[in-house]
Computed example of a mutant assay.
Amino acid sequence: MTDIEVADWWGTAVSRIEPDHIELRGIPVADLIGEIGFGAMIWLMVRGERPTGRQARLLEAALVAGVDHGPHAPSIAIARMAATCGVGLNNAMASAVNTLGDSHGGAGQQCVELLDDVLDAAAGSAAIDEAATEVIAAWRARGVRYLPGFGHRFHTRDPRRDPLLSLVEQAVDDGTVPGDHLRAALAVETALNKGRSRPVPMNIDGATAVIHAELGFPAPLARGLFVLSRSVGILAHAWEETGQGRRNKGPVPPAVRPTYLGEHPAQPAAPHDTEAEGIR
């Protein structure tokens, strides 16, 4: 291959790196250092444009809200366990990030897809409430037991929900976001709770899904943004664990013996005691 062909092979609009010069999305890095926040930098790098101040603050709120949920979360627990295995912070963080899949970490992306389905259904002349009911039924018919973004195994009402949705409402009022995905999410929440004695409110995944979708991020990026957010908590927990002196920390304390679910080998028959029976 020629030099030009090799250069084109790695062609990118994200960055331009040359001797003594670095540009990120066409902006010299020297012009960004000290002048842009990390949330706004994420926006710039992913989307190729700077957000407005209000857009950046709303994205920052979502990123801050998702940083940690303690060792209850598998990603955090794995970060702490890996940190005691002599692998270093980078491996501990990578081990934790690699657990962020469909069941743990993917609900934000799935919730954006759910809300998009509601808006698509509503665009076909159905009211948003009717569309939410139809989409819930359709997702249930596909075998979805837990709707992504709603309910929580630990909280009766996720403490992050209300402050995040309040910020979205403010952003709708000031014209920063349109509010369509917020309305869809609230419609799903209402439809989901009809006839229930125990409410199933929106959770962190649902609230951040609303923010990401309102800001125009496609569904797959909702998961990527959550990974960036949770990486902060992963780093903090891994670092704390390295200072606690444990080695080879397992998922349960050493005194706990996991329940054995396999079969026990047959016990050999006891020797026949003829003396006891008076047999000579």
Rank of each mutant, 00 (worst) to 15 (best):
A207G: 07
C111H: 08
A56P: 01
I36S: 07
P199G: 05
R16D: 15
P28H: 06
A122G: 07
V29E: 13
L235Y: 15
V29A: 14
H152C: 01
T12R: 06
I279Q: 00
I17G: 01
I204G: 00
R142M: 10
G243C: 00
Q244A: 05
A276L: 08
V87H: 05
H264S: 13
A61R: 15
L59Y: 09
G175R: 10
R196Y: 05
C85Q: 11
G179N: 05
E130I: 12
P251C: 04
G179A: 08
V14Q: 03
G34E: 09
L24C: 11
Q244R: 14
V135A: 07
G206K: 08
P265M: 10
N248P: 00
R280V: 04
G278H: 01
A270M: 07
F217P: 01
A107N: 10
A270P: 02
S15F: 14
A7S: 08
G206R: 08
L119E: 05
D31W: 09
S95Q: 06
A209T: 02
G101L: 11
V118T: 12
L182W: 04
G250V: 07
R142K: 14
E23T: 14
V46W: 04
V172G: 00
E277T: 03
G262S: 07
F38G: 02
N90D: 13
V97Q: 04
S95E: 08
A13H: 12
A236P: 05
F226W: 03
T2Y: 01
Q170F: 06
T2L: 00
N248C: 06
F38N: 02
L89Q: 04
G124T: 08
G245D: 03
R246M: 07
A121W: 00
L32P: 03
L182N: 02
L114S: 05
P51R: 04
L182V: 07
N193T: 03
L225K: 00
K194Q: 08
L235M: 15
T176M: 07
D120Y: 12
G245I: 00
N98H: 15
L164G: 02
H264G: 07
L114G: 06
E277L: 11
V87K: 03
R257M: 08
L228I: 14
R25F: 11
E18A: 15
R198W: 02
I76M: 07
L186K: 06
H21W: 13
A213S: 05
H181E: 05
D173Q: 12
G70I: 14
P258K: 00
A94H: 08
E113Q: 15
Q110D: 12
N90Y: 09
Q170N: 10
E263Y: 10
L100V: 08
A131P: 02
L115K: 04
E49D: 10
P159N: 09
A236Y: 13
V252Q: 03
V252L: 11
R160D: 10
D158I: 13
I136R: 00
A132C: 09
G105A: 11
P201M: 02
P19Q: 10
P163F: 09
G11Y: 12
W239G: 02
L261T: 15
H181F: 15
L221W: 13
D3V: 14
L114W: 11
G53F: 13
